[in-house]
Simulated assay, not measured.
Amino acid sequence: MTDDQLTEAVGLFDVGTLTGLCELVLENTTPAGWDVVIVSAGANFYYRDGSSDTDGPRAIQLRGGEKTSFFSRKPSGCTNRIFLAITVVARGEPGSKTYTANIDDVKPDECMRIRGLSFGPKNNISESLLKKCDWADGFIITAC
């Protein structure tokens, strides 16, 4: 199959109508050597009409570099807020810790379709160091 034939063929599939379902992607961005695991998580999806539903809580074993998704359940819904709760354990640390996040960055006339959250270390640098970075075509060449 040529590239043109493939392009034409993929256009033949009926993709159907998009629904109001919303996906929240959770990623553990901690370095693998830290042995930090997200062991449980759940998401509340809130709709513009005042109703809500929950995906979870459920047991997961999300290690550094892994991700999972949570989904709203109302095809006709307009998600305007998501609340996420996770429980994390780390090697060498006693017990577990619970973290939460609230996502409400949608405009009044829009509905959320996909959002992503990452759990990992913060990485801030001085603005003066940022100006010394060497960029080419949107990719960093030198470490900053």
Rank of each mutant, 00 (worst) to 15 (best):
G138W: 14
I114E: 11
N44R: 06
T79V: 14
V89A: 09
N123G: 08
W34S: 03
C133A: 06
T7Y: 04
S118C: 06
R63W: 06
D55Y: 00
A9E: 08
K131F: 06
A101W: 01
D134Q: 12
P75R: 07
Y46A: 00
L130C: 05
C133T: 08
M112V: 10
L18T: 02
G92P: 02
A136Q: 15
V89H: 08
F119I: 08
G116R: 14
V15A: 13
E93K: 15
E110F: 11
C133L: 12
V106G: 01
F83D: 15
R113A: 09
A32E: 11
N123H: 12
A43P: 14
V106H: 01
L21W: 04
T98L: 14
C22H: 04
G16I: 10
I82E: 05
L6W: 12
T2R: 09
Y47V: 05
C22Y: 08
V15S: 05
G20I: 02
N124A: 11
A41G: 07
T30W: 01
V88K: 09
S126P: 10
V39N: 01
N28W: 02
I38V: 07
V39Y: 05
K107C: 07
F71N: 10
V39S: 07
T2L: 09
K131G: 05
N80R: 04
T54W: 06
F119N: 06
L62A: 05
S40G: 01
D109N: 14
C144S: 12
G116V: 13
N102G: 13
G50Q: 06
G11A: 11
P94H: 10
E23W: 07
D105T: 14
A101M: 05
I103F: 15
V37K: 02
R115G: 12
G77A: 03
S128H: 06
C22G: 12
G33Y: 13
N80P: 09
T7D: 05
P31V: 04
R73F: 05
E23R: 14
L24E: 06
L117Y: 03
T2V: 06
R73T: 14
K122G: 05
P94G: 07
T19N: 06
T79C: 13
P94L: 04
P57L: 01
A43S: 06
Y99T: 00
V106R: 00
A9F: 07
S128G: 07
L26T: 00
E66H: 11
I86R: 13
D137Q: 11
L6I: 04
G11N: 14
R113W: 02
L62M: 01
G120L: 08
G138Y: 14
K97L: 03
G42A: 00
V10S: 12
C133N: 03
A143K: 15
C78G: 14
T87Y: 01
T98R: 15
N124R: 10
T7S: 02
Q5T: 02
I60C: 09
P57V: 02
T17C: 10
V25I: 07
D3Q: 08
T30I: 00
D4L: 15
N80C: 07
M1P: 13
S51I: 01
F71R: 09
G120C: 05
D109M: 11
D109T: 13
